[in-house]
Write a protein that binds this DNA or RNA. Structure first.
Length: 473
RNA sequence: GCUCCCUUCGUCUAGCGGUUAGGACACGGCCCUCUCAAGGCUGAAACACGAGUUCGAUUCUCGUAGGGAGCGCCA
């Protein structure tokens, strides 16, 4: 049997981290088994579905690299099929027309809650109701009144529900469109989905769907309900905290593989391993290793993983991303060193490509002033001669590579009887404007000869002005 | 309210009857060191509670508490 999973988002908003995790697990399971992964858009509710959401979902999945083998299948293209099966259920007496109005149902629900009862449809129309003028009926499914449904969930084990707890759900709306429960069940069967892997929030829906499956004469898929991902504060992910569009992570300079690596460890583990290549994930992923409890999203751990990926990825792979980040913050990548070289120098110092771009700004744009604190501490008259020697030595230096630059600094430091750092740190401030950068030789190489010389000149002028000011006091 | 699910360091997790309860992030210390990082070593830090089952429970069962989900002509 061909293993087949599906990711079935509804296009009513952007794709967020929770959706990506669900898609990832579906994808991993299918890839591991050599099966198929299908993308299906659940857009039966025309009022809430938007083309922008569809676009955001497709883009998001493409960005993280979760590619699908079939689809996207749109449920809105399959209405004829749903109608056909609803008609069949009606004909067989397994479903019925219900003329209760939304207002009546709402009132009923309220009354039930007020009376401390379980809110559910009272089955008023179940045994035949006369058509009411001006009201187009919905179709309701006749849920069995007794018996029970046992789900054998791959992550939770057996879960039992009594049919008596369930009510008769609407399967076709008054406007003739199908509802979620009806369309999922039909599509999963028609598409021959073998494993339904989805969020925990669907566990309670499963017995209703199984009753429908049985009425329709379909076979049951295997089920796996994944634990939820909570926001950083431990509450449900929502627009207010954490539930940002997955594409935001791209904007912020996260790497798709790092995001997937982070997500795969939320609810799944393989011993103590933290870092997984995509191939390893595929090879090692098993539903039995998915745990059942909800987890919190941690942006700190994501940041750490992203840094690990930045450190380990070939510079050439990272270069386009850094290029884009530089442009995004208003820098011109062509006005400085090759971005791949910058990555080599900065990769251990940045958590995201955005951060990296921000840290290396002085390579692409001149700065107006030295950072006050760093300048005060390091650009002092005592170091003037040393800096001046450095300036001259750099001007005459044959090549412009880190090793030669390092040797030059060392030579000047020796001649002036200074520790390397005593000279290096003032030089760093002179050339970068601040006190933090990659190793000074690498930094100077990246800044370039011309810029380095003019910046050292500026530092010398700064020191002179400072000395003059001190004298006048 | 009813039904269902969940519960190991602050967080992500390993554990699948007998362990000094392991790893990772974050945090502290030390080392390395031209700054900042990265890296190495190291420290503090957890089995929600109560009953059972058992020679023995973090592990199995049942309660309690806490958290979550569902109960739509949303998905």
């Amino acid at each position: 049997m061909q293993i087949k999973t599906r990711f079935a988002p509804s296009p009513t908003g952007f794709l967020h981290i929770g959706g990506v995790r669900t898609a990832l697990f579906c994808w991993l399971f299918a890839r591991h088994a050599g099966g198929k992964f299908v993308l299906r858009i659940e857009d039966t509710d025309a009022r809430r579905s938007t083309p922008e959401s569809i676009d955001a979902i497709l883009q998001g999945l493409e960005w993280v690299g979760l590619d699908w083998d079939e689809g996207p299948v749109f449920q809105s293209d399959r209405f004829a099929r749903y109608t056909e099966l609803a008609t069949a259920l009606l004909a067989r007496g397994q479903a019925y027309h219900c003329y209760c109005t939304p207002e009546e149902l709402a009132a009923m629900r309220e009354a039930q809650i007020a009376a401390g009862q379980n809110p559910r449809y009272n089955r008023k129309c179940r045994d035949g109701a006369a058509p009411r003028a001006g009201i187009s009926p919905v179709v309701r499914f006749k849920t069995p009144r007794d018996g029970e449904i046992t789900i054998h969930d791959a992550v939770r084990g057996p879960v039992v529900y009594a049919n008596a707890e369930l009510d008769d759900l609407v399967i076709m709306r008054a406007d003739g469109s199908p509802t979620y429960h009806f369309s999922v069940v039909i599509d999963d069967a028609d598409m021959q989905i073998t494993h339904v892997i989805r969020g925990d929030d669907h566990l309670n829906n499963t017995p209703r769907q199984i009753n429908l499956i049985e009425a329709l004469g379909f076979g049951r898929p295997e089920y796996a309900h994944l634990p939820m991902i909570l926001g950083e504060d431990g509450t449900r992910l929502s627009k207010r905290h954490g539930a940002v569009n997955i594409l935001e992570y791209r904007e912020q300079g996260y790497l798709p593989d790092a995001v997937l690596n982070y997500l795969v460890r939320l609810g799944w583990s393989h011993g103590d391993q933290e870092l997984f290549t995509l191939d390893e994930m595929i090879e090692l992923f098993r539903l039995e290793d998915v745990n059942a409890s909800a987890s919190r999203f941690s942006s700190e751990k994501l940041a750490w993983l992203n840094q690990q990926y930045i450190i380990r990825s070939p510079a050439a792979e990272l270069a386009p991303g850094l290029d884009a980040q530089l442009r995004a913050i208003g820098l011109d990548p062509d006005s400085g060193p090759a971005v791949a070289d910058v990555i080599e120098g900065f990769r251990e110092r940045a958590t995201t490509l955005r951060e990296l771009a921000e840290a290396c700004g002085y390579l692409y744009r001149d700065f107006d002033a030295f950072e006050a604190k760093a300048a005060k501490k390091h650009l002092r008259p005592v170091i003037r001669d040393g800096l001046n020697d450095l300036r001259e030595a750099f001007a005459e230096l044959g090549g412009w590579e880190a090793a030669a630059i390092q040797a030059t600094i060392q030579a000047v430091a020796d001649r002036r009887e200074l520790g390397f750092g005593k000279l290096g740190q003032p030089l760093r401030v002179a050339v970068t404007g601040g006190g933090v950068s990659p190793p000074i030789d690498v930094t100077i190489e990246l800044v370039g000869r011309e810029r380095s010389l003019t910046r050292i000149d500026a530092a010398l002028a700064y020191i002179d002005a400072r000395a003059a000011a001190a004298e006048h006091r």
